[in-house]
Design a protein around this nucleic acid. Structure first.
Lengths: 169, 169
DNA sequence: AGTTTATGTCAGTCTTGTTGACTTTCCAAG
DNA sequence: CTTGGAAAGTCAACAAGACTGACATAAACT
């Protein structure tokens, strides 16, 4: 087994993985450089609106789960409520997000995109999807499955929970 | 073709890719959540040293290419020199990085990790490699190849250049 | 000699994260 | 029923790390 592994460092067959520090380092740098590309297009667009990445994240997840509460958004984004609040305040003031007091629990605020908010969301996600689509196409179908599998394994358990929660919506 | 594509959205066979916005959205969120996991361990460690992610990045690439110049580091990291300078200044002051005046071109500063710097680098990269290794193992060999292929496709051309430059070192 | 390049620094701003203190609302134990 | 704590959200102040712009120095190039 050890011998086969040496001959097939990251073989595609039935061999086990034999991973050198060097190969792992390349994976790490791939993540670093790719994430830059991943955020580049939305970042460019956001400058025209005087918003930042934090606004993009809020808009994305409010769009994914309309009516989500501030608290739920907090645990998804992993920031403090004060930090998120500043972002939400500006989005609400600018009329991109609507905040409705909860019916059952009046402490909660349920968040929705307005038509303006949905329009920005589409502009941002279209740019990001175009890049993702191009990457998927050029890499091929098997690569996409592998990409998703490794990324899932890289998540912390709670992040994985949030990720999978978005599957059944 | 359209029919087969519908039946095999991201088939592994000879079918072309048929990508719904929903599938692309999952890929986008996978990147978001996975990047958090990717940086979680180093971030935790860095708190003990009163450093941030910016210091980690500098340390990583100085370790990858010892003797690199400030200018080269700038184009890899994609930040302004003022921003990088603040980070380098503190690392040099704390004795983790050494800056040597260039021999041929005395305007250049060549950067090296000291023994202390190399020690922190090992601590950080070990944590990050462990996570990457675990993700690779759980996802399997074919997944790793796909992961790398998609990430490369996601990079901007200049990032890809820097990424590939690190292959032959 | 004059220009460009590589680096460093000062000052000021912006985004986005943090902690601390506060209000409103809900719920449950006495 | 009341009261005290927990939960959700808001306001204020601060810190890290990015940015721009201006300027300085030294070395290299033309």
């Amino acid at each position: 087994m050890a011998e086969r592994a040496v001959n097939n460092p990251i073989g595609t067959g039935e061999s086990l993985l034999f991973l050198t520090d060097e190969q792992l380092r390349r994976g790490i740098e791939a993540m670093f450089f790719a994430y830059r590309g991943f955020t580049a297009d939305p970042d460019r667009i956001l400058q025209n609106y005087e918003y930042g990445r934090a606004h993009h994240r809020a808009i994305h997840f409010i769009n994914r789960t309309p009516g989500t509460t501030v608290n739920n958004l907090l645990s998804i984004l992993g920031v403090t409520k004060q930090s998120l609040n500043r972002v939400l305040r500006s989005l609400i003031a600018d009329g991109l997000v609507e905040s409705r007091v909860g019916v059952q629990d009046k402490r909660e605020r349920h968040l929705y995109l307005t038509e303006t908010g949905a329009k920005l969301e589409r502009e941002l996600s279209e740019a990001q999807r175009n890049r993702m689509r191009a990457a998927y196409r050029n890499a091929g179908p098997e690569a996409v499955a592998g990409f998703r599998a490794v990324l899932e394994q890289m998540m912390d358990p709670e992040m994985l929970r949030h990720f999978q929660a978005g599957m059944d919506t």
